[in-house]
Every structure is written in structure tokens, then in C-alpha cells.
């Protein structure tokens, strides 16, 4: 395990941002490997509890996009 790397939990909407993350890959855009994506059906699905629990589990940041 690499020390001190940040962890960002990304809750991405299946219909837009998840697709955008896919497209970033297709376009070979390079970005730091700190993000862990959790696919959700819609940002409407996102309970504030998910954000809080991600932070509690040690995430340095939570990114919600949709």
C-alpha cells in the first residue's frame, strides 16, 4: 500500500457522470489514481449517510456528481 495517498470516494450517477468517467478513459485523460468510484442509479439515491460514512471510513473527500 502506498503511504499517504489520498482517497476520494466518488458517487457517480450511472447516466451522466459515470458515463463521463468512462469517456475520460476512452479519451485517455490522465488523472491521479485517488478516486474510488461507486456507481449509483441517480444522485437522488444518495443518502447523506453515505457521505458521512465514507468520511468516517477514512475518505479524504467525497465527490458526488450527477
Amino acid at each position: 500500500m502506498v503511504e499517504n495517498n489520498t482517497k476520494i470516494v466518488a458517487f457517480l450517477c450511472n447516466w451522466c457522470s459515470y458515463g463521463a468517467a468512462d469517456l475520460a478513459g476512452v479519451s485517455r485523460m490522465q488523472y491521479p489514481a485517488d478516486i474510488r468510484v461507486i456507481r449509483i442509479p441517480c444522485t437522488g439515491r444518495l443518502s447523506p449517510k453515505f457521505i458521512l460514512s465514507a468520511l468516517r471510513e477514512g475518505a479524504d473527500a467525497v465527490w458526488v456528481s450527477g
Binding site: 447523506p48 449517510k49 458521512l52 460514512s53 468520511l55 468516517r56
Partner: peptide, 17 residues
């Protein structure tokens, strides 16, 4: 949803939610 003890995060989570 939230831990049951006196952990600060859990206490705050209760109040926030």
C-alpha cells in the same frame, strides 16, 4: 446507518441526520 457508541463521528452523525 450509524455506530452506536460515543465516537464523535457517530454522535455528530446522529445530530446532523
Amino acid at each position: 446507518w450509524v455506530g452506536k457508541g460515543q465516537n464523535t463521528t457517530d454522535v455528530n452523525t446522529f445530530h446532523f441526520l
